[in-house]
Every structure is written in C-alpha cells, then in structure tokens.
Design a protein around this nucleic acid. Structure first.
Lengths: 192, 192
DNA sequence: CTTTTCTCTTGATCCAGATCAAGAACTTTC
DNA sequence: GAAAGTTCTTGATCTGGATCAAGAGAAAAG
C-alpha cells in the first residue's frame, strides 16, 4: 500500500534512502470502506492525505440540505481541507469514500517537518499547490462561462476516467447542474 | 512607490536589512494608465506582480467575443497568470488597469532566488498561495450553489471596497451574470 | 433468486436569469 | 460646456436548465 506512494515520489523527485525512510516513518496508513468518512463537517482537518487506491469526494451541505460536490480525488492525488488546516477552524466540508479506498496520512506538523528537511519534497508539494490553484481557476472560468453541455464535455475531456467511475448525480453536482440535466446531455451526446 | 511594498513586507515578516535590500534590488517599478495592459493574451507571463496603487482585472475572451472576468486585484495584492508562468505557454488571459496603477514586478528567476535565499519570504509567498487556493475553492462553491442575489451579497461582504470602485458590468461578469441582472438585484436590495 | 433500495431516464411544466430594446445618467473629449 | 461615448436602468419577452413526477434499470441485501 505504501509502495504506491513510494513509486509516486520516485517518479517525481530524487531522494536519498535516508530521506525516503524519513518520509515513510511519518506515514499513517488508513483504509476506508465505501461511504466511510475521511473528514466530517465540524471536525478540524489536520492532515495531508494521499490516495493510493480508490476514490473520494469533498462536498458541502447548504442550508436547504443540498450537497455540493467541491472535488473528487483518486489514485495518486492529494486531498483534504486546506481551509480548515490553515485556519484551525472546524471544516465546512465532508470527505467520503466513493469506493473502498486506501489513504496515506501525514499530520500537518510532520508534513511541515518533511518540507523543511527535504527541499525536493518541499518543491514537489509547492508545485502541486500551484497546479491546484491553476486548476481551480480554470474551473471557475468554466463555471462562469460554459453551458451545461460544454461543462460536461470539458469534464470528460480533463478527467476521462471519472465520467464512468463516479455516479452521475455527483458529477452533476460537481458541474453545478441537476442529475436530470446531465442525463439529458449524455443521451443527446451519444445520439450525435 | 516602493515604500508601500516595503511596509507590506514589514507587516508580514521580519527581514534583516540585507535581505530587505536584496528584495528591493530586484524590484521593477511599473506604472499603468487606466486601460493599459499588464498582460495580453498570447504573451508569456514571466513575473510576480504586486500592486501598490490602483486596480487591475484579469479576464479571458471566449470564442463569441464575450469577456469573462477571472479576478480583480488592488493595493497590497498580487496578480499575474500562474498558468502561463508555470507552463511557459502563451497566456489565455488579459490583465488591464481599471484605474491608473502602480505595480512592482519581479522576474520569476529573481523571485525564485529570493524564495530560496530568504526563508521568511518563501513562507510568506507560500501562505499567500495557500490562501489563494482556498479563496478560489470558495468561489467555485459560490458559483455552483448560490443564486444571483446571494453571489452579489457574498461579493459585497467579502470585498466591500470593490462594489463601488469597479464598473458594474465587470462585477457582473466576475459573478457570472449579465449587467442587467446585477442592476436589478442592486435596486431590489436598496428598496428593501 | 427475489425483494428492496438506489440510480438513471424521460416527459411535462415552470422560473431565474438571459436577451433584446430604448431611454437616462454619467464620463470623456475637444 | 456641448457633443459623443460609455455605463446604468427599466421594461418586455424568451429560454436553458430546474423542478416535479413516475417508470425502468442496476445494484445491494436478505
């Protein structure tokens, strides 16, 4: 289970075996069955989480009880709630498993230690953060300017794996439309 | 003009006078008159830009010629196109001045040098990036789940200064609605 | 296997916000 | 300070996607 993370690191950066061992020593392995929570609204998030197997979603619940899917994450992606981590406030989000999943956790304190001790690791994390920001900005642009169909095509194009793996209702929520609309768009596309 | 940036740094972090001088030595001062461009679509963005006076907007133009405002930035904020900076590809965005503005530029090379030389500076920049990501994520949530009125109230609440300073049509674009809708929402709110 | 419970599809209707239009109120410019 | 742009407001109409509803498939549970 840790192997996958090790491989991920090896692909991205070069580490001495001491550094590599140091990272491993902080890793907390966690398994989640489908529908189990990694984070529940109201709890403070204090980790950095890497997914080695499975798939999770981050969502919020509004006053009227509607769920809004903020994001998905699967193998070789990071997840968590940076807002709660940064502020120390209880999270507004939930993260739960869409499939049986395996996750590696680092406490924030250990993670920061790794960042300060291992420059290559720090760079990797920083690059990921920068990319995440760019992705978020592009999603804002899409949400503001695309039609429902364009949003879906853009999603399929960017994340081909997710379109079949994740329940449609959650994809609809992620894209800011109803499941009915997404269903119609899909059948319309295949008819073309 | 540089004083404002110096003050900003002093407020956020502690620097030796050598470090402070080192930062200053890399600063490129730039003035923009209203409507002038800091970045034009198709150019590669290679800087980090800090605004000491005035206000700019980042926007894209779609196939149909519609402008989509991605963001605003004014005094004591950073701006730029991280996507182009990271990838080295020509930018899809434009950044222009909404008022006569004064901006401090650092080339990316110099900026990275400062980050590696001055840990406190690096931390500051990293914190800003993390916050930017959180802000972007919250904006995604708002775009997906709020009504037009809620989006506007949320905007006014978060950025009280901007609501009066920036032309309504641009705020409307930023919020993903037409200027007519925003006008109606505004008059409806004041009537309450 | 069979029942129960989700998830997806399809149809009918509705509505928030878009579009079109045209006048009013500001800003620039000369 | 008059003329020419802009930007903002207000009204009438339209429409993409939401909502409501009710079966059809799939998947999970017994």
């Amino acid at each position: 289970m840790y192997d996958i993370f090790h491989k991920y690191l090896e692909e991205k950066i070069t580490l001495t075996s001491e550094e590599s061992e140091r990272i491993r020593s902080f890793a907390i392995l966690k398994k989640l069955r489908k529908r189990q929570y990694l984070l529940q609204e109201g709890d403070v998030w204090q980790y950095h989480a890497f997914i080695t197997k499975g798939c999770v979603r981050t969502y919020s619940v509004d006053d009227k009880g509607n769920e809004h899917v903020i994001g998905f994450a699967s193998e070789n992606w990071w997840t968590g709630d940076r807002e709660s981590l940064l502020s120390g406030n209880p999270s507004r989000f939930n993260i739960d498993a869409l499939e049986d999943s395996e996750i590696i956790l680092f406490t924030n304190a250990n993670f920061e230690l790794l960042c300060s001790e291992i420059p290559a690791f720090n760079n990797l994390i920083n690059t990921i953060l920068q990319r995440s920001f760019v992705v978020a900005q592009n999603r804002i642009e899409a949400a503001l300017s695309y039609t429902a169909e364009e949003k879906y095509l853009n999603f399929v194009n960017k994340y081909p794996g997710f379109a079949t793996r994740i329940p449609q209702s959650m994809i609809a929520s992620y894209l800011g439309m109803t499941p009915e609309t997404l269903s119609r768009i899909r059948s319309q596309i295949t008819r073309k």
